[in-house]
Amino acid sequence: MNTDELVRALRPDDLLDDAYHRRRGADLTRILTDPPSRRPSPVRARLLLGGAAAAVSAALAVPVLVSGATGPIVAGGPAGSGVASAPADRVAPVVTLDARSFLLAGADNAARADVKAGRYWYSRERSYEPQPSGEVLVSSTETWYDGETGRGRTTSGLDAEVVAGGATAKAKPTPRTRDFRIKLLTGVGGESLSQDDLWRLPRQAEDLRRWLEARRRGEPSVDFTFSMTRLVLSGPTTPATRAAMLRVLADQPGLRLERGVADPIGRPGAAVVSADGANRLIVDESGARLLAEEYTGPDREEERVGRGVRVGARTGEKTVYESSGWVEKIGERP
């Protein structure tokens, strides 16, 4: 037996076979229901299928925004609803507000937003994923999901691009559409929330603050609050909950407000930035509608917390919330 044969005989085939047979079903279920080209969301979704829990990375963690958000609080600001397309002119601020005042005004606007009835929660998002090579992968995903029946559809791989060194290469679009019937749960602080649970989140700022604090599990308050603001403002939550969330965010110390900015697809708005500059939410000028989020802090490693995983973050990651709202049928858009 030569050295290669000797080393080959050391391969732990029994152990590998055991793991392969034990994990194959759950792995394939989890992976094949994951939309391609998505980065994990800070709030990891979990998928329950056939009674067996299997982790899924953010299958439905990012939908949406407030449909029918109210008008601007600043004269000249765009009301902005639906999917924006062409880059818009920068908005000149007429009134100077600090971040806290801006968010509180946004909360008032969010609370007044109409609630559109419908069976399916629809969202279209665009994600920007920096790669170690320096390239940035860009892709859009559309999702419809009815939490009551578990029926849904996801189409991913739309508008794929690779951006490297300022040059953009359009990748060959390979959109994949999958119809599914599964129960999607969003994990927050060890608790799994259904679509209905998200709808029933506390509607008063103080109640929501207590609810969040009970689930923060040691994560820095500012990071957790920004993550939850993304979830609440982009998810199927009530206008009152969104307003409460903005009030909770407004109480974070050291927030900065940047006016006259645009999101990565050119929609004008204002940026609310955490004191350390790492977390940046771009909202429309009403302050009530989330347009995009950007992470510009140092790379964060994935971290185990109890039985859960706090996913990492890479500097330069962005998610654009292009459109969302309730619709009656799969295929319809708000």
């Binding site: 732990p12 793991a19 392969y20 994990r23 194959r24 994951d34």
Partner: peptide
């Protein structure tokens, strides 16, 4: 799968290695 897990086991204990193998295939799918 077995090849990837075998490689991960060289550096990580069993549970972590299995998670890394799964994550590897999730990336491959994406």
């Amino acid at each position: 799968y077995r090849n990837v897990l075998g490689y991960a086991l060289l550096r990580a204990e069993r549970q972590s290695a299995e998670d890394i193998a799964s994550e590897t295939f999730l990336i491959a799918w994406r």
